[in-house]
Simulated assay, not measured.
Amino acid sequence: MADATTDNENTNSNAGTNNTAPPPTGSQSTSVIQHMMANKVDAGLWLTRLITVVFTILFILPLLGGDPYSFYQRALISCAASSALRLHQRIPNFQLSREFLGRLFLEDSCHYLVYAILFINIYPITMALIPAFLFALLHACSYTKTILNLMGPQSMMFLRHMIAKLEQQQTNVLRFIACNEIFLMPAIIILSFTGKASLFMPFVYYRFLSMRYASRRNPYCRTLFSELKLTIEYLCAKPQCPQIVKTGLYKCIALVTRLAPQPDTAQ
């Protein structure tokens, strides 16, 4: 889910002379349908990601009423479907071998398939939907640009501007996702002790966080851990920091450093 979808620049030769965008013609609509039929997996990914976005919004803002927990589950189910489709794109031929499983668990889409399954049947956690929602939004916007280009270079300019603004903030969004993933760990530990999550949940989530830390395609989790470490060390070095707090924080840094996996840099 962390890799961005490539934009296809398909423009119509008869468009672009008017300042106002004309409504889509029959040929433009046909081009969109033909493109989606020729790229069924990409179109399916677009739809499942839009579903994730919609159900997350309905969970956070109950605009239509209904059971919020059902929206929460549906958002994660569609996230799992997106991850499974993307995983099929990345590694289409399944093999029951150790080498194949090793490749499988290196894929970001596999990480988020595990993530969605992990959170789908526990007490609803809004923080758990944030990464799924933001990744779905980023990738859905990327494919939406492809659809808009097929409809014409001047089609739906307001939507194009919104997508452009989101793309400008992509790095900040990815950093926020990584920060959310990190701070989900203490939230899960608290839920485990309050009986709202299994006692095994922190250990399973630790494996997910380890995979995100070692990701070759998305370095933001690793970067955020490094920045948090530097920030805590800077605060501990201040004379105002009590010795007991300083000792506790240094022990936490040592524990996290010891548990952190070594990133696999093999290509």
Rank of each mutant, 00 (worst) to 15 (best):
A132E: 01
F176N: 08
R103S: 15
R258M: 09
M1C: 05
A38K: 12
H139T: 15
A128V: 03
Q168F: 02
R86W: 00
L174V: 00
M36I: 03
A254Y: 05
Q34A: 13
A136L: 04
L87Q: 12
V245E: 06
H35F: 15
Y72A: 03
D7G: 00
R86D: 04
T52M: 05
P263W: 10
F59H: 11
P239M: 09
W46L: 14
L113K: 05
N19C: 07
L137W: 12
Q89N: 14
E107I: 02
D3H: 14
A81I: 06
C252V: 14
E233Q: 13
S27T: 14
M127T: 12
N218R: 06
K229L: 02
C236R: 05
E107V: 06
D67H: 04
Q89M: 09
N121E: 13
R160V: 01
Q267D: 14
T231E: 11
T30L: 15
P219E: 04
A15C: 08
L118G: 05
R216T: 08
A136M: 04
Q73P: 00
R175Y: 09
Q89V: 03
T257G: 03
P92R: 05
A237G: 15
F133K: 03
S31W: 00
V54T: 08
S97C: 01
C221K: 00
T231F: 12
P186K: 05
S82T: 02
A214N: 07
A75V: 06
I125Q: 09
F55S: 02
L230K: 14
Q243I: 06
L199V: 11
T247F: 06
T247I: 07
R49P: 00
M156P: 00
L159V: 15
K238D: 11
V41Q: 10
P22Q: 05
M151T: 06
Q267I: 14
V114G: 03
Y143Q: 12
A128S: 13
Q73C: 08
L138G: 04
P124Q: 03
S29A: 06
A197R: 08
Q168S: 09
C110I: 01
P68E: 03
C79L: 10
I177W: 03
L45A: 03
I60V: 15
S31T: 03
Q34H: 08
N172W: 07
A140S: 15
L50C: 10
N12W: 15
Q28S: 10
L148Y: 06
P153E: 15
Q262V: 14
N18F: 10
F133L: 11
K246E: 13
S109F: 02
L87H: 11
L118I: 01
R90H: 04
L63P: 00
I130Y: 12
E9P: 00
